[in-house]
């Protein structure tokens, strides 16, 4: 087996909670708690989860856009979390980021062509004279007209702006592209266009995607393998087919049962699992399984003993005490 392009090991990110009373020990919110996964070259790995599950924080920490607490992130064997200053800036050409909000992610005072060439200018990859041709190519690749290069961001629609963001991410010819909710700010018709564009670019350029989304439909369309996160931990990790056809973790089952379907057979087959209650406080997570307080099948040991993430089937890992070696879902 070839070594993975991206390998994340025990990544932990925590934030100091502000507003605590003085002279009291600072409280920490552990947003990402010991996340481990690999991404193979050329695949799309999806991370799904509800708001606050830590999926975006994971993406930002891997991209070195927020400070991590501990762990290891290797891209092509290079430890990203150990890089500093100029080394980090030079390494950034290998991993690029596509942001969620196409409105706030483009500098309103720069023209489209300047925004797209920003990575090249910052890292100093391509001499100024040769950038012209590259911008032409990138604009064509993402489906923008060449005469739009001199427009300002406010003169574009949301979908067009996201295309500019994609062109910017592709400019330094990266190996890994991290898409943080790249389509969730767009309306559905435009979402489909952008997703197809991303897939075509992946084929043409051999890109590897780390795809963050809360939308299961989008993830199903885009990703080869999927990690489900809940409160900072990966609860289930599987390839697309196993995850959607035979989900194991009660949380994943509940998520999938909530996806609306137009297929009457599927509607009849799936039983709706309703989750009640609120997630526990993220500043003081429960000692056991973090889903235990809302889980329909929780046992006493779920509340005290954290379940390890273990492989129950080839390539299918799950963190639940109730999934036996026969790999049958408890709900």
């Amino acid at each position: 087996m070839t070594p993975p392009l991206l390998s994340v090991k025990d990544l932990t990110v925590r934030f100091k909670v502000r507003g605590a009373a003085p002279f009291r020990e600072a409280a920490y919110l552990t947003a990402v708690d010991g996340v481990t996964f690999d991404v193979a070259r050329g695949e799309s790995l999806g991370i799904v989860g509800e708001s606050g599950s830590g999926k975006s924080t994971t993406a930002l920490a891997i991209a070195r856009l927020i400070t991590h607490h501990s762990g290891e992130v290797r891209l092509d064997g290079e430890d990203l979390l150990a890089l500093k200053g100029g080394d980090l800036r030079r390494a950034r050409r290998k991993f690029q980021f596509i942001f969620q909000d196409p409105y706030s992610s483009l500098n309103p005072r720069r023209r489209a062509a300047e925004i797209v060439t920003e990575p090249l200018a910052s890292i100093g990859l391509v001499p100024k004279g040769d950038r012209r041709k590259l911008v032409d190519d990138l604009f064509e690749a993402v489906g923008l007209r060449p005469e739009q290069q001199n427009l300002f961001p406010h003169q574009f629609s949301g979908g067009q702006r996201q295309r500019i963001g994609i062109a910017r991410a592709l400019a330094p010819n990266p190996a890994l592209v991290i898409c943080d909710e790249a389509v969730s700010a767009l309306d559905v018709a435009v979402q489909a266009q952008i997703l197809n564009l991303l897939r075509r670019l992946q084929r043409e350029r051999g890109l590897t995607y780390l795809f963050i989304s809360h939308d299961l439909g989008v993830v199903q369309h885009m990703c080869d393998r999927i990690a489900v996160m809940y409160m900072g931990k990966i609860v289930e990790f599987a390839d697309r087919l196993s995850l959607f056809n035979s989900p194991l973790h009660p949380y994943t089952c509940a998520l999938l049962s909530a996806v609306p379907s137009v297929d009457p057979d599927r509607r009849a087959r799936t039983k709706r699992i309703l989750i009640t209650g609120e997630p526990p406080s993220p500043t003081s997570p429960p000692p056991g399984c973090r889903f235990a307080s809302r889980c329909p099948v929780a046992e006493p040991r779920c509340k005290t003993e954290p379940p390890p993430l273990r492989e129950v089937r080839e390539g299918h890992r799950v963190a639940c005490h109730l999934v036996g070696d026969d790999a049958r879902a408890p709900v």
Binding site: R90, F97, F99, S105, L106, P108
Partner: peptide, 10 residues
């Protein structure tokens, strides 16, 4: 986000 984007751009 565009400040973060510029940082991601190096």
């Amino acid at each position: 986000e565009y400040v973060m984007a510029a940082r991601a751009s190096g």
